[in-house]
Design a protein around this nucleic acid. Sequence first.
DNA 1: CTGAAAGCGCTTACAG
DNA 2: CTGAAAGCGCTTACAG
Lengths: 352, 352
Amino acid sequence: MARTTAGAAGARPTIRDIARVAGVSKASVSYALNDLPGVSAETRARIRATATELGWRPSAAARSLSRARAGAVGLAVARDLRLLEEEPYYMRFIAGMEGVLAREGLSLLLSVVPDVDAAVEVLRDWWGERRVDGVVLTDLRVDDPRVTLVAELGIPCAVRIGLDDRLPTGGRLAASLDPERQAFDAVVEHLLAQGHRRLARVSGPREFLHTRRRDVAWDTVTRSALGRAAPVVVADYTSEGGLAATRTLLARPERPTAVVFDNDVMAAAVVAEREALGVRVPEDLAVVAGEDSMLCRLASPAISCLQRDIVADGARSAEVLLEVVLDRVGPTRVSEAHRFVVRGTTAARAPG
Amino acid sequence: MARTTAGAAGARPTIRDIARVAGVSKASVSYALNDLPGVSAETRARIRATATELGWRPSAAARSLSRARAGAVGLAVARDLRLLEEEPYYMRFIAGMEGVLAREGLSLLLSVVPDVDAAVEVLRDWWGERRVDGVVLTDLRVDDPRVTLVAELGIPCAVRIGLDDRLPTGGRLAASLDPERQAFDAVVEHLLAQGHRRLARVSGPREFLHTRRRDVAWDTVTRSALGRAAPVVVADYTSEGGLAATRTLLARPERPTAVVFDNDVMAAAVVAEREALGVRVPEDLAVVAGEDSMLCRLASPAISCLQRDIVADGARSAEVLLEVVLDRVGPTRVSEAHRFVVRGTTAARAPG
DNA sequence: CTGAAAGCGCTTACAG
DNA sequence: CTGAAAGCGCTTACAG
């Protein structure tokens, strides 16, 4: 009805149609529509009007072929589905990327695979077929094969790293900085103020680079506050793993009075199973979660936790990626630090 | 090192290179690599070997342009970020789609936007630029503008619908069937067996088609079990909304002894705030969640709930979409029914 | 400021 | 079975 020329669905107008209708050459159409010099103001306006009238949209494939740009970036999430189950993280991260990408007319390709090796294959395919102009890597592992790959193939890539992390040089790697180094400062300060002296931490798997970052932060801050580094038990982010690690800690002679968990699930599991563990929370055991979520908010007592702006993190990652992709050199983006949110699991207690 | 001919990063080999090296025409290369007739077995093998040796990968853009296929499908998630926060749903759904798409060499484009109107714009862009060959729509609304759009533009599209839902005819819509009609059968039967007679439900927003489906199911099953339809209070999937709706129900003369919530967050909020609400769970109030999650498992008591295989749902959706896209006509895929998982919030009680 | 032409990397009838 | 050629819808030097 409205569309006069396009006709039935499927009959996409091309710049050739616009050129014919507007009485100019294809080249002029291209210049006009891409805001390039080479056409007079009137001609440009006429061409624009014609394009609108015909309902023209550029063909992504044709553009991609002639510009040698995919017009898309990829996010390959490498994470066990079991762990993904309670990960509100990614949808928020993606929503954050979205805003930045939309501004540049870029699409987002997403792949969710169980491990880094599968992710490497996805990256190889994406880049081999030039489906993406660059990729965002999350959940970096120690000696991550994805990082090796992107460096080798020269894939523009954005990662989140800590101040002290070393990345392979060369390649087209951009980083947004994760100021995780200060993550535990407020936590430990708060726990000390509450009278706690025997602190412990239940960490995520050591393969993750951010676990290592937290290791360093934990070591530094507890050493400076207590004279020696407080203990860490490694777990796997699952409720079972968190419970097992906590049992280990509670069985020690130097039984901790406060435990900091690297994620929300482990902390919530401990709070839920406090009776089975034989502790009152927070009276016998203060609990802090390394990530916030509904699990923390709906636990009773509600769980004190570290909080951060994940949507903003996604935006930061997209921004630094675009800079490498577009060969603009921009400053590294530093994300906001974690905020420590005090809730019921670290309420005041008598010094033990 | 290994790659002998490709040279520096960026020097992608094309079928022209293969043709030159193998001493054949580009056409023969295309035939050989696409398993089409027109080349002898030996030639095909030689061409294949050359392609492998050169590290050739098809250019997605070139293929897309000449085949008039994008080689990708899109998923436009239209959901308020606030509600998305606790949605492990999508990552699992996407992982399910992934397996099916990978088999056909298709990529997944993802967009996360706050509402259906924004989603309509995304769909318009994707289809206008032919970035996708089809789309999957989730969280269908009543009179969903996205459905109108895909029908109008003839975008191949997969949706999940109930047995009784009507969809616009025409267009290229495929549906996988959601057997939600039986969702409440086991729940109500179980609650009756526990002695409950005053049941109620706290639903999700009425704009969602699946809320309407549950409305019908609830009406049918409670009417047949109790002689009249049990009451429903509409809420918004948030913890605050769930609590408010529950307060409304508890204030009624016909105060319910069992409440079924359309999602996990509302049920978990009520269990967490049971003291503030002045009820014991399950003694005064049995609670059932319409979706399972860690929130249900870590609540105390753990929350009885409906459970389903979301990864499988994602796979079903991708399958039916591929059938419309590839113009194969296949049977509608029916998903598995919900399972009712009994946990602590519906433990045995004395008849009220 | 404008137009004719070549090119991006594939696919696909059409002749041999 | 094989090759030369046109085409997909854009972009971009290069002449006028």
